[in-house]
């Protein structure tokens, strides 16, 4: 589905990512871990194509096509979707209006999905204005449900979400990733950033990657890696340099 090759990324004139290699196959979900400030968000925002993130070396290949220099909306139209860690507020723009604008020809789905995500009352509110942490996550998942991306990137989907909402969000994401389908008929892929791994109670991960200081230092089984981090902290995991 997506292949990242020897990627180097600068923000301003500072190199934030170095020599990133990652391959996610069709139907697979991978987990990205790593300490605060290690570069996880930077990686997925670079994949989405935001202007502040300059690729100085390497390539992002999506479904066989080099998308390294494509504008954001073309990546989105090819099927890449992103759940933001901290989305901006847009004064005056109602969530419902935005959903209709991005839904293509399916405005009727907006009400249905909004109800499913418990967001019906938010459709008339300005996007993200005064939304609580959990409400932002629900709104992000709702936007992805409308968008139906093939490759879904989720930036800390469970952080700041209470138990009841984790189950709501977790199940919705599982559905986005076609986890209800057998692997052979599953075509959606995912990359999930998580610190706690709670989301893995709802979504089975196929692999994990550890990022540290702008590099991916370790690949392995996501649950085992998380357990190790929980038990021994990041240091041990980083120092082992299994890669």
């Amino acid at each position: 589905m997506i292949r990242i090759e020897d990627l180097h990324v600068e923000i301003g004139d500072r190199e934030v990512l170095r020599d990133i290699n990652l391959h996610i196959g069709e139907g697979e979900t991978h987990v990205l871990m790593g300490p605060n400030g290690s570069g996880k968000t930077t990686l997925i925002r670079t994949i989405m194509g935001f202007a502040d993130y300059h690729v100085t070396e390497g390539a992002i290949v999506y479904r066989g096509r080099d998308i390294t220099n494509l504008p954001i909306h073309e990546r989105a139209r090819y099927g890449i979707g992103l759940m933001f860690q901290r989305p901006p507020t847009i004064a005056g723009l109602k969530l419902g209006k935005m959903l209709v604008a991005t839904s293509g020809n399916r405005p009727e789905e907006v009400a249905e999905y909004a109800a499913a995500m418990n967001m019906a009352e938010f459709l008339e509110r300005d996007i993200n204005a005064g939304f609580s942490g959990g409400e932002i996550k629900r709104s992000e998942v709702l936007q992805l449900m409308i968008q139906q991306p093939d490759f879904v990137m989720l930036d800390e989907p469970e952080s700041g979400v209470d138990l009841e909402n984790i189950s709501l969000i977790g199940s919705a994401i599982a559905k986005l990733l076609e986890k209800d389908r057998h692997i052979v008929s599953r075509h959606k892929s995912g990359l999930i950033i998580t610190h706690t791994g709670y989301i893995l109670d709802y979504i089975e991960a196929d692999a994990g990657h550890m990022m540290c200081d702008g590099e991916i230092r370790c690949h392995g089984n996501a649950r085992e890696m998380l357990q190790l981090i929980k038990a021994k902290g990041y240091r041990e995991c980083i120092e082992c340099k299994k890669i």
Binding site: I72, A76, T102, Q143, I146
Partner: peptide
């Protein structure tokens, strides 16, 4: 960029924000 990541091109995104 937020709206572009949902599939709107730059002009559509700008117009949507202005309308808001």
């Amino acid at each position: 960029e937020y709206l572009m990541s949902r599939g709107l091109d730059e002009d559509e995104a700008t117009a949507t924000i202005i309308r808001g």
